[in-house]
Simulated assay, not measured.
Amino acid sequence: MSLLTLNNIEVVYDSVFLAVKGISIEVPEGGLVALLGANGAGKSSVLKAISGLLRSERGAVSRGQATFRHENLLALDPPERVRRGLVHVLEGRRVFEHLSPAENLLAATTMHRDRTRVTRRLDEMLTLFPRLAERANAKAGYLSGGEQQMLAIARALMTEPKLILLDEPSLGLAPFLVDEIFDVIRRINAEQGVAVLLVEQNAVAALDLVQSAYLIEQGRVVMSGSAEALRANPDIQEAYLAGHNQVDYHAVKHYRRRKRWLA
């Protein structure tokens, strides 16, 4: 059963630059789906179209339909989308640096009137992320990059979402921290039934985590399928999996084998 469906979505900035060119994707209930591609491919614009955060960057959805739980998503403002169960963890973590981890988590609960429920949810997050419990009295700005990423994900989970949008959660993290973050994402999906739409350049880690994926280049979906099918594709192996993260993404961005992609 489909949780999120995008049909022929286009995103334009400043009413001039077309960043996303007719993308259609689907995230099933409880699904794990990745958007793969190089910098500038349009992946983050897709997430912002879903969460409603394009306006702050002078962007807009100029065409297409988006439904979330069979409701017209584009008719809802960003706070209402969160109340419906959709939450976005932006690239770069963006925690409140002057607040403690617990205060960061509580900042995401203004929609909840039941304070007992909030306290219970806070305890669940500190259990799920024991590093945050250990640093409970520290300012978030003094946490490590991995701890800040955990805090950003935990803060999103405080809203009790049905779907979490994750933008580059592995960015700037050491490999062992990437493994830890992805293990947490796997647990969130398996234990809480939260669907995940993941934007990620680390194709090796992403394809080990998700069930299906879409490859985006220059604002278009050029390949989609199960994680196993994409992992086995020779073009994907050459452009995105060669050397296991030793990929020159500048070269990938300029990769030109359109006929093979489309075939």
Rank of each mutant, 00 (worst) to 15 (best):
G225N: 01
P78M: 05
I185M: 14
L54R: 02
Q192N: 05
A203F: 04
G145K: 08
R84H: 13
R121Q: 15
K48P: 03
S56Y: 06
K139W: 06
G52I: 00
R83H: 14
D248Y: 10
I25K: 01
S212N: 05
L6N: 00
R84Y: 06
V95L: 08
A60M: 03
L207C: 11
D14T: 05
I188N: 03
L18Y: 06
T109F: 09
S56E: 08
S170H: 05
T116P: 00
D167F: 06
H98K: 07
M111S: 05
E228R: 14
A133D: 07
P78A: 09
Q65L: 02
I23K: 02
K43P: 10
V61S: 01
P79Y: 06
G40Q: 09
S224F: 09
R258C: 03
V199T: 09
A108C: 07
H98V: 11
M125L: 15
R257A: 08
E29N: 15
E168T: 02
H244N: 14
L18T: 13
S170Y: 05
V222I: 15
R69I: 09
E134V: 10
G22H: 07
V184I: 15
F176R: 14
R121E: 12
E26F: 09
P78H: 07
L157R: 00
I236L: 03
P161R: 11
E217P: 02
T67Q: 14
Q237M: 12
A205R: 15
G92S: 09
P175A: 12
F182C: 08
L122P: 00
L126D: 05
I153D: 14
H98T: 10
L76H: 14
L163F: 08
A190Y: 06
S144G: 12
P101W: 05
L35M: 12
L171D: 13
A108R: 08
Q65A: 10
R231P: 00
L4K: 06
I153R: 06
N104M: 09
M111E: 08
T5S: 13
A205E: 13
L132M: 04
V61R: 01
I153N: 04
V20K: 03
S226W: 10
R187L: 11
L128K: 13
D208Y: 03
R258D: 12
I23P: 01
V118K: 01
E103T: 07
V12R: 15
G64D: 01
V194Q: 03
V184G: 04
L177M: 15
N189T: 08
L197H: 02
R55T: 02
V87K: 03
N104G: 12
V46C: 05
I50W: 01
T159M: 03
A107V: 04
G145M: 15
R58I: 08
R58P: 07
G243E: 05
E168N: 13
S100F: 06
R155T: 10
Q246M: 11
A41W: 02
S56R: 12
L54E: 00
A60D: 01
H244G: 09
R83C: 05
G146N: 08
L166Y: 07
E191F: 06
G31D: 07
V184W: 08
D248T: 13
H98C: 07
T110R: 15
G30C: 09
S56C: 06
R220N: 11
G30S: 11
D183F: 03
L99M: 11
L35Y: 04
E168C: 01
E217Y: 14
